[in-house]
Design a protein around this nucleic acid. Sequence first.
DNA 1: GACTTTAATCGTATATTTACGATAATGGAT
DNA 2: ATCCATTATCGTAAATATACGATTAAAGTC
Lengths: 113, 113
Amino acid sequence: MSQNKKNQFNDDQIKLSRFAKALSHPARIAIIEHLAKVNSCICGEIVEIMPLAQSTVSQHLKELKDAGIITGEISGPKICYCINRETIYDMEKLLKELLSVINKENSDKKGCC
Amino acid sequence: MSQNKKNQFNDDQIKLSRFAKALSHPARIAIIEHLAKVNSCICGEIVEIMPLAQSTVSQHLKELKDAGIITGEISGPKICYCINRETIYDMEKLLKELLSVINKENSDKKGCC
DNA sequence: GACTTTAATCGTATATTTACGATAATGGAT
DNA sequence: ATCCATTATCGTAAATATACGATTAAAGTC
C-alpha cells in the first residue's frame, strides 16, 4: 500500500499482453491458422470460412493488423492479407522468455505446492 | 458477446484463446513472472508489488486461477499461490502447434507479401 | 458515366473487462 | 469471545470487446 504501487508495468509485459490480447479470440486464431495454412495472401475467402458476418471479420482483421500480426495490401478491389513473420518472431521471443522464467528452476523449487 | 458463436470454432482454438485471454493484461503477466521468479508459494505480497488495489489484484488472481494457470491453497488466513505447471505445459503445446503452422513452409511461400 | 465487387467503417446493442471502495469471511492471536 | 490480518466478494461505474446490418469507399468492368 505504498508508493511502490505507482510502479508501472514494463514494456515487455505490456507488449506480450497486447500479443496475447490479439490471440484472445478463437476467430482470430482461426484467421491466423488459415493464413498460415494457405501460405500465401488470401483475400475475401476468410469471410467464407468464418461463422461471422463480413463486418465482424473485418473488425477481427483490423485488430490483428493493429497488433502487427498480419499485413494487408491493396490488390485491386480486394485486400491481400498475410502473416507478418517479424512480429510473430517478436511474440515468440517474448513468449519464450516468459516460459523460460516459469520453467527454469523446476529442480530446486521449494514452496508448498 | 451478444451472440455466442464460439462453439463454431474447434477445441484447440478455444483453449488457446482462453489461455491468451488470461495473459492479455500486463498485471497478470507480472503476477505470473513474480510467482515464477520466487519459485515458491508466495502469499500476500503480490498486492504490494502491484500498482493496483487489493480487490483488483484479487480479481486478476481469480482469472488466472479460473484459467488453471495458478493454484491457490489455503494456508492459515493467507492464501498460497503458485504456478500450475501442467497447465503451462498444455499452453506451451498449443502455442508451439500454432507457431509451427505459421513457421512451417517458410521456404516455398508464394503469395505477394 | 453507371454497375459490380470487395472490404472498411458507421451506428448500435449487448456483454465483458477493469477498476475501486466497502463489506464479508476466514483463521490466528490475544 | 474479541481483535487483527488477510483475502474474497459485492456493488458499481467506466471502458472495451463483440456482433450485426447498413452504408460508404475504392477500384475494376461494362
